[in-house]
Design a protein around this nucleic acid. Structure first.
Length: 748
DNA sequence: GGTGATGAATTTTTT
DNA sequence: ATTCATCACC
């Protein structure tokens, strides 16, 4: 077949293998049996995976379509495909049919066998929004009070079951009592409804694969027999269902190679099971375990800081990263007054780096939570620094795009009630709740879709006057559009639909500021659809796309969450917001106990190890949350960084030591004004803080003692009541007793 | 059935 | 602060 055409390299010691270090070579050449590659940050994990695939192909151990290679993001899958092709010196290999994300590969398998599990191959994949709306509707039907049991929370419970491979029948015991037994009721109804909608959610993709394999052994045999080699990226992020799936598929040839790093497991909240990687040797007897510990990315100081931090975690497989590289600069730590000043500081640093010859695309700002990006965006707009927020609001999540897609979904799958309901009265057609309810009643009674119910009522004369005309027109339009599918490209059809449905005019008539942008987005959608051959292909793409995939184009600073940054690297990394309550996040502190604190620490580790040359950490004394000022103390993670690898920057909380007096004055005024608005100066974070310990970071000047009079920008004048290292307890004249850092007060 | 006003909740991370 | 949902009234 195509195999021979791909081999243009000598088989003995091909040059793509000789460039690897000994461990990497072993990971590539140990092709038979289970293999776990523990691959620390920056140790060439992707290189190993791609070379291994190339090696398998070049050695004629398997045909491309006999290799299953799964990742978590489309981007990782794409990169893998590109690098394999490059290694083999061939063009894009179209025969690696089973290289993709867990979701896309399992969707592909399900499309082929949909009928076996009660679906048709045109099934739609729901997004979170659809799921919530569906659960809300079901809650009402089942008389479950959404005030007590918010659909969002119920979805969380259901998803956690799916992540563990539990179909409704398997939810028993304690689990079945979750949310007073309401969750399991809802789960059953939800799965049933999904089937009648011919729809699946994310979790179902794997879950139904499991049902398929257990109910139809011949289906399992087909794939387990086909996949001679299975490769898994980011194994530490797999959940139980995915683990079971891999286990089944590897039954045939037992050649399962998982690459991962327990220290980078940051998706526990999504059902990822670190246990999968910790237990690999027991799960797959005779497994070879290979450690990749030579780091090719970061300087010694950065690596030292990262290693020191992660060493505080328990339950690790344990790796010792090392590098031949330069010492580099120490990790810099800066304290600032508030989020705005942090943005000013980072902006200046970026401009300085730029002057020194660095490109913006070599820099990144990694934040813990999405809201932190705003301050940077505002500042960068002012300074004219081009930036790109990665993974922010996604294109396909915008209302106008979802509406347009809903039209397409109804055309594609008339049973898609969720899509139908979304657009039946958008634009306004005079079809309100009462009419919709009427359709629902009929649909439920006859066990048919809303579209068919609407047609049925219409034919029976159940709608009157204007209402009848408008429903009749809409249903006929759908028929017409459906008829165009065979003859017209989908981008053209979309254009027609947006036009004829009146959806475009709706926004044209809207004179609000964002309407123009929405029209632009619709145009963009039509343009983007040009790339897809069929509506099915496009809808599948939309269902499984993630915008992590779009990398920054051109010379821009990337601003992104730490989760979005995994797998990336930058010369210069900024890690702002290292404060207790934000990072580690309060929720993790409150809810998850030690495990989730350790996950936060791993997240910090991921952040630090993204940096190649410089890393700059900052923390603010005050931050505005829900429009309320909260004072905060530095993250415990800062104290956990080995002193030998860090350097504290000049100018503490008052910062801007170079700034003219006027600026300082303005800052103080701004802060005081803000302080006046504080109704109940927030203690939410402070209340949960542990008393200061000896691990408190060193600071520039302290040496305050009891009885000293001090001035604090926000809280005004006060008296020191107690001093523990750098942490002061101050009785403020205007408010009450607070704990603050010595950095943040001046002698009065 | 549509519209505007009032009140509540929101911000951790995403395939 | 902003967005979302619900409710009363047109």
């Amino acid at each position: 077949m195509q195999l021979s055409a791909q081999i243009d390299k000598p088989l003995n010691n091909p040059d793509y293998i000789s460039g690897l270090n000994p461990e990497q070579q072993r990971a590539v050449e140990t092709t038979q049996g289970p293999v776990l590659v523990l691959s620390g940050a920056g140790t060439g994990k992707t290189r190993v995976l791609t070379t291994r695939i190339a090696h398998i192909l070049a050695s004629r151990l398997a045909f491309p379509n006999e290799i299953l290679a799964v990742t978590f993001t489309n981007k990782a899958a794409r990169e893998m495909a590109e690098r394999v092709s490059h290694l083999l010196g061939s063009g894009p290999n179209k025969n690696l049919h089973y290289m993709g994300t867990f979701h896309s590969v399992s969707a592909k398998i399900l499309r082929k066998h949909a009928e076996k599990i009660g679906f048709t191959p045109t099934f739609t994949i729901l997004d979170t929004d659809d799921q919530i709306r569906l659960l809300k509707a079901l809650s009402e039907e089942l008389h479950i009070d959404v005030k007590y049991h918010p659909p969002k929370m119920m979805l969380g419970i259901i998803q956690s079951w799916k992540d563990r491979g539990l179909v409704p029948e398997k939810v028993t015991g304690e689990q079945a009592n979750k949310a007073q037994g309401k969750a399991i009721l809802l789960y059953r109804a939800y799965q049933q409804r999904l089937k009648s909608l011919n729809a699946l959610d994310f979790g179902d993709l794997i879950l139904h694969n499991l049902s398929l394999f257990s109910g139809f052994p011949e289906a399992l045999e087909e794939y387990a027999g086909r996949f001679r080699y299975i490769l898994v990226d980011e194994y530490q992020d797999t959940n139980v269902a995915q683990y079971l799936w891999l286990r089944l598929l590897s039954l045939g040839h037992h050649n399962l190679c998982c690459v991962g790093d327990d220290d980078q497991s940051i998706y526990g909240w999504r059902g990822a099971e670190v246990g999968n990687i910790l237990r690999f040797e027991q799960d797959f007897p005779g497994a070879a375990v290979i450690r990749l510990e030579q780091n090719y990315r970061s300087t010694k100081h950065i690596l030292g800081a990262a290693s020191g931090l992660i060493a505080k975690n328990h339950e690790r497989l344990g790796k010792t990263l090392w590098t031949d590289g330069e010492d580099g600069e120490k990790v810099r730590i800066k304290s600032v007054w508030d989020g705005d000043e942090e943005a000013i500081f980072v902006g200046e640093e970026i401009e300085a780096l730029q002057r020194a010859g660095s490109r913006l695309s070599d820099m990144a700002i990694l934040v813990r939570a999405g809201f932190q990006t705003r301050a940077f965006e505002e500042r960068f707009l002012k300074l004219g620094i081009s930036y790109k927020v990665i993974g922010g609001l996604r294109f396909y999540e915008r209302a106008e795009i979802r509406d347009a897609i809903a039209y397409l979904r109804v055309i594609h799958e008339p049973n898609d009630d969720l899509a139908f309901e979304r657009i039946i009265n958008t634009p306004k057609r005079g079809i309100g709740n009462a009419t919709l309810e009427q359709m629902h009643t009929t649909a439920r009674a006859q066990n048919i879709s809303l579209t068919r119910a609407a047609r049925m009522i219409l034919d029976a004369g159940g709608f009157k006057g204007k209402l009848a005309t408008s429903i009749h027109a809409l249903l006929n339009q759908f028929e017409r559009w459906r008829g165009l599918l065979a003859s017209h490209p989908i981008s053209e059809i979309t254009d027609i639909v947006i036009d004829e449905s009146g959806y475009r005019s709706m926004w044209q008539a809207d004179k609000s500021i964002e309407a123009q942008g929405r029209l632009e987005n619709l145009k963009e959608l039509v343009r983007a659809m040009g790339e897809f051959e069929s509506l099915t292909a496009f809808l599948e793409h939309v269902g499984l796309i993630t915008d992590m995939d779009e990398a920054a184009q051109g010379d821009m600073v990337g601003i992104m969450t730490l989760h979005a940054a995994k797998g990336l690297e930058f010369h210069h990394v900024f890690l702002p917001g290292l404060e207790e309550g934000l990072f580690p996040h309060q929720r993790a502190l409150d809810e998850g106990g030690r495990d989730s604190l350790e996950e936060e620490r791993r997240l910090a580790y991921v952040g630090i190890t993204r940096a190649r040359q410089t890393l700059t950490i900052s923390y603010a004394a005050n931050r505005r949350i829900y429009n309320q000022w909260q004072s905060s103390i530095p993250s415990r993670f800062i104290a956990e960084l080995p002193e030998a690898h860090v350097e504290r920057m000049e100018g503490g909380a008052y910062g801007m030591s170079r700034a003219p007096d006027r600026t300082l004055l303005q800052q103080q005024m701004k802060a005081i004004m803000a302080g006046q608005n504080v109704a109940r100066p927030g203690l939410a974070w402070e209340a949960s803080q542990k008393p200061a310990t000896s691990t408190a970071p060193a600071t520039t000047k302290n040496g305050y003692s009891k009885g000293d009079r001090v001035f604090h920008i926000k809280f005004g004048y006060g008296t020191v009541l107690a001093a523990q290292g750098t942490h002061l307890e101050i009785g403020f004249d205007k408010t009450d007793v607070k704990k603050v850092l010595a950095d943040f007060v001046k002698r009065a």
